[in-house]
Design a protein around this nucleic acid. Structure first.
Lengths: 291, 291
DNA sequence: TTGATCAATCGGTAATACCGATCATTAGTA
DNA sequence: TACTAATGATCGGTATTACCGATTGATCAA
């Protein structure tokens, strides 16, 4: 039993005339007769009652017709869902992102869902390491982070933009009026920083060690949003990329001088893996946004 | 797109290993690869993500899988309903019958539905002519009647049994004690007969004319059940086949002498048309019952 | 009776499903 | 690191079969 035969059968059942059906299907009448017969042979049951030159459905044919139609419909629906996917009218885009890029992500999501409202977007926040693990098993489509993935055999990465690490303080903070701050000055203020394991934190620790300074870290948090809310109280400062604080008008970002503290934000894909259209389109929108 | 390809795809999606899937499907791995590729080409979309020797479903593949499964399931269900039909576990048997055969029909229906409870039985009572018209357009499967169908090119008929016409009276009727009655005596009694157009009535009129008698017909009815109920009041007599009164214990049947009044009950099929299994089985049960 | 119409059938051809062999790549192992 | 087993893609060849045109036999309408 093949869809081809079901298609022939359904059209024949609708027209109850093999010659017309054959024309309609752009095949010869002999082919149609043969294929119908083949279907009947397989089912071991007559589907049409040939009485004289008349053709009508048998009870079996009538019952079978429903299922044949449905089978064809389902196959067609499957084809359609693929077309929808191509036209970004279906599917789910799964994004992995570190908190530092949430501001960028949010604005792109707004733009994307406006253009393609039928595509669902699922964002998975986490540490770079966790996200890369999920990417490895294709649980997410790509990862937005500040970490350059180590394994270039598995991953494929592209730098989106660079963002300097800066001191982030509330507008009411004494430092808010300063234009910049030297790295050495960090030693004298109370800092709230991302928890150890966070990419930015580990990077910072490395910088602190190399410059032989050891700032006081009063608070550490494994949630960047909470961290920023803490800073917004005016009691703490933190060090994050400028991108992290974008969109929060009551925070000031002070460039840290005395050392190069640039971090590269990148998008990371699974190497050689199929990229769904929604993912490539979304990635392009991000790139445009940061230009 | 063919069911074959959907079958290959579904199994491959389940095992996520082309070699195993090919073995499972009893085809070579090369064939499987080719068929999957062909399906992907037709959809213009990758269904599997080949990463190294690993194979996993793409989003499109995952979405398509549901529809592929459903399509296969529907085709299979269609096959199953045909099997059910063969095993008399589905379908509807449509019987046309004249009232004179309702008693026989009832007992056969009881026996049939006991054996095949999943087969629906629809009985269409009517005049022989109406029923043969319905048979002609295959609205019913066969006709049970006392009429020999005229057109042997269209119909195919078989005699089931013969039933003599007899005078039917209530047990309280003066004639109830008689053993038989001569046709001439009919002239002197009040008769309730089937309406003109009813086969038995037309046959009777013919007999009356040939024997030059003209009985008094007080009542004529186009419903045999009503007619018999009328006879059961004791005020009228009627003439019907013995079979018509079977099952009604308060009625007596008096053979009519002086002339041969035998009627042949027959089953009539559409010539050369497909006969559904339920119909042939039911017909056989009727034949056994009248033996 | 005749001609038109319809489905079945036949023989031949083109398309293709299928196979085995081979290659390229990868994952696991010594 | 090198080796091996496993896996999917590809190639060339073969067997199958979907397809066609022509014909036949039957039916229906004029």
């Amino acid at each position: 039993m093949e869809l081809r035969q079901l298609k022939y059968f359904v059209r024949s059942a609708e027209l109850l005339n093999f010659t017309e059906a054959a024309n309609d299907l752009f095949i010869s009448q002999s082919t149609l007769s043969q294929q119908i017969k083949q279907l009947e042979d397989e089912l071991d049951m007559l589907l049409f009652d040939r009485v004289g030159k008349r053709v009508r459905l048998t009870e079996a044919g009538n019952l079978f017709l429903t299922y044949a139609r449905q089978s064809l419909q389902d196959a067609n629906d499957g084809k359609q869902i693929i077309e929808d996917l191509k036209g970004l009218k279906a599917g789910t885009l799964k994004i992995g992102a570190t908190y530092g890029l949430s501001a960028l992500l949010n604005s792109t999501i707004v733009a994307f869902t406006k253009l393609y409202p039928q595509v669902k977007v699922a964002v998975d926040f986490g540490t770079s390491e966790d996200l890369l693990e999920k990417l490895k098993i294709a649980e997410i489509d790509f990862v937005l982070s500040f970490l350059q993935p180590p394994d270039t055999n598995v991953f494929e990465s592209e730098i989106l933009f660079d963002s300097k690490l800066s001191l982030i303080v509330h507008t009411s903070h004494p430092f808010a009026s300063k234009k910049k701050i030297d790295i050495k000055e960090l030693q004298n203020i109370h800092l709230a920083l991302p928890a150890k394991g966070f990419n930015t934190r580990d990077f910072l620790e490395d910088v602190f060690a190399k410059n032989k300074i050891s700032p006081v870290v009063n608070v550490e948090l494994n949630d960047i949003n909470m961290l920023l809310q803490l800073v917004e109280t005016g009691n703490w400062c933190t060090v994050l990329t400028i991108a992290s604080a974008s969109g929060r008008t009551n925070l000031c970002t002070l460039p840290i001088t005395g050392i190069e503290l640039t971090r590269d934000a990148s998008i990371t894909w699974l190497k050689d893996a199929y990229r769904k259209k929604a993912a490539t389109v979304f990635a392009e929108m991000i790139k445009k946004q940061v230009k």
